[in-house]
Computed example of a mutant assay.
Amino acid sequence: MNPLIQLRHTLHQFPETALEETQTANRILEFFRPLNPDLILEKLGRTGLAFVFKGKKPGKRLLFRCELDGLPIEDLKESDHQSQIPGKGHLCGHDGHMTIICGLGEKLSQNRPESGEVVLLFQPAEETGDGARAVLADERFEQIRPDFAFALHNLPGYPLHQIVMRKGTFAAGSTGMTIMLTGKTSHSAHPEAGINPAQALAQLIQELPKLPQEATGFALLTLIHAELGSLAFGTSAGKGSLSMTLRAFDQQDLDELIEKVKFKANGIAESEGLKVGFSFVEQFAVSVNDSELYALVEKAAKDLGLSLTEKPDPFRWSEDFGLFSQVCPSFLFGLGAGENCPQLHEGTYDFPDELIEAGVGMFWGILSQLQ
């Protein structure tokens, strides 16, 4: 079996979830040591890795990024490389993305860049939106701060090997948001002696989903969880919470939607005599593709004889590579995983091994044009 495919299968068997990817990082480190990179950064952003290959002359620094983490979802597809970790699986294809960057590392070890530097980044915790932020916050990031950054994501539902492109926004920004309402418990026989958040919660559930209609571009608010008091029939509730996911194609629209939710919640809470608080999780920036890099990606695809498609609208899902587009000109593109491939995050999904060669070829083609 092709060594890269064997590596992908090994990674698939031993998935680790966000910020726990120590064994995965060790496997990647073992793969790269014989390739003699000029610089190795370990535990970057806690569990990440970066390998730097330096050129013969000064020049631009290019970064190619992949993700280390799997998902807390059972791997249901029976195969000789099925996940050996109960309740966890590489069901988004990060095992394949890592393998592609490993293949690029092999090529760089045999053909150092003519100029500049190439950074191969294995980023933790993409699925939770914490990984890119952790890497950028690491003080050692300055050693690898790129002039250009690139990433790909496999896309089920598109023909195998097709390159999916967009200028501007490629994927939405999103955030998980929870509103916490605090009143006062009382005996359920005397609810007037307490402050029950039920009415405020009901009003928020009705009114918040209407807020995105005010945005100039695409915006969406999806309610995902509500909680009121506890299952104690003698007690009138004194606490409640409402959780939602906000998303938009424009970062300003997303930021404004968050402020509108806060304003609405504060107003309703005040009218009901409640205290209100907010918390945020899984925050993803909008992924914005630099229009000037489009031609490089397009040429790389054409040189490989791969079909290209222009997506009319951005994807509604999020990818934390979006934070890199706030650091430097960046480009995220899709690589078709087959029209009949199970969707990402489904239990029967398995990254198609045929994509490894195409992914390496795409990154090498981009790299070659920037030397």
Rank of each mutant, 00 (worst) to 15 (best):
H161R: 13
H161D: 15
H161T: 13
Q162R: 15
I163E: 06
V164R: 02
V164F: 05
V164D: 03
V164K: 03
M165V: 07
M165N: 02
M165W: 01
M165F: 08
R166M: 06
R166S: 05
K167M: 06
K167I: 09
K167E: 10
K167F: 05
G168R: 13
G168D: 11
G168E: 10
T169M: 03
T169Q: 05
T169Y: 01
F170H: 12
F170E: 11
F170V: 10
A171I: 01
A171L: 04
A171K: 05
A171Y: 02
A171G: 07
A171N: 06
A171H: 03
A172N: 04
A172F: 02
G173Y: 00
G173P: 01
G173M: 01
G173E: 00
G173D: 02
G173K: 00
S174Y: 02
S174F: 04
S174E: 03
T175E: 10
G176Y: 10
G176H: 10
G176C: 09
G176D: 12
G176K: 10
G176W: 09
M177W: 08
M177E: 12
M177T: 07
M177L: 13
T178R: 11
T178Y: 04
T178N: 11
T178V: 08
T178L: 04
T178C: 12
I179V: 14
I179G: 01
I179K: 01
M180G: 13
M180C: 15
M180N: 13
M180V: 14
M180D: 15
L181W: 05
L181K: 07
L181G: 03
L181I: 07
L181S: 06
T182A: 14
T182M: 10
G183F: 00
G183K: 00
G183E: 00
G183W: 00
K184Y: 05
K184W: 06
K184E: 08
K184T: 08
T185P: 10
T185Q: 11
T185G: 05
S186V: 07
S186C: 08
S186D: 06
H187R: 05
H187W: 05
H187M: 03
S188N: 11
S188V: 09
A189N: 13
A189D: 08
H190S: 14
H190Q: 14
E192R: 09
E192I: 05
A193P: 07
A193L: 15
A193F: 14
A193S: 15
G194Y: 00
G194F: 00
G194C: 00
G194R: 00
N196E: 04
N196I: 04
N196T: 07
P197H: 08
P197L: 08
P197K: 09
P197D: 06
A198I: 09
A198P: 03
Q199K: 14
Q199A: 15
A200N: 03
A200H: 02
L201D: 01
L201F: 04
Q203E: 15
Q203K: 12
L204I: 08
L204T: 04
L204S: 07
L204R: 03
I205R: 09
I205Y: 13
I205H: 10
I205T: 11
Q206G: 12
Q206V: 15
E207W: 08
E207I: 10
E207L: 11
L208K: 00
L208Q: 01
P209I: 06
P209Y: 05
P209M: 06
K210Y: 09
K210S: 09
K210C: 12
K210T: 14
L211F: 13
L211R: 11
L211A: 10
P212K: 01
P212R: 01
